[in-house]
């Protein structure tokens, strides 16, 4: 993505100002605006960090420190879909290692990688707090519960 493409639309800039006005100090809106930046630009590049820093009168270094602290901000292009398999305790007890191994085999990638066609980024993540339906994973915005290898196959096939 070229540097010139890193800019919000006038409507988005209005939304940024609205978000900033909700907090006693406009900095409070930094995380929400970084979510917006990621949704708009696909991931949070160094250029995007610099752009967002400008909207907050913050140093790019501060924004970089924030972006790298949180797991939901991607600093490199991600797949069109993100598949995040929980591998914490309850999911582990319910067979998460087998589910994760199955997904890796199906996609031919390791956790932290993206398929060559840019379709799916795979992650192994900590407790997503749906342990009553273990093993589980998150696919983009959705929680997929009570997984079996067959169910995983159906879900992966449905991702364009």
């Amino acid at each position: 993505m070229s540097v010139a493409a890193i800019a919000f639309s006038p409507e988005q800039l209005a939304e940024v100002r609205r978000l900033q006005s909700l907090y006693p100090d406009k900095r409070g809106a930094l995380l929400p605006v970084l979510h917006m930046a990621q949704d708009t630009f696909g991931y949070v590049s160094l250029e995007a960090e610099e752009y967002v820093a400008g909207l907050f009168d913050l140093s790019p270094a501060h924004v970089h420190e924030v972006v790298t602290f949180y797991t939901l901000y991607f600093r490199e292009p991600k797949g069109r879909h993100v598949v995040a398999v929980c591998h914490n305790l309850s999911c582990h007890l319910a067979g998460a290692p087998e589910i994760l191994a199955h997904v890796k085999r199906r996609l031919g990638i390791e956790a932290g990688e993206t398929t060559g066609d840019g379709r799916i980024t795979l992650q192994a993540v900590e407790c997503l707090c749906a342990c009553e339906a273990a093993p589980m994973m998150q696919v983009d915005d959705r929680y997929e519960l009570n997984l079996t290898p067959e169910k995983v196959d159906r879900i992966l096939e449905g991702l364009a």
């Binding site: 914490n88 305790l89 309850s90 900590e126 407790c127 707090c129 749906a130 342990c131 009553e132």
Partner: peptide, 11 residues
């Protein structure tokens, strides 16, 4: 910010 392993009540 529910995140404690094994907890899902706030959801």
């Amino acid at each position: 910010d529910e995140g404690e392993p094994g907890t899902f009540k706030d959801r």
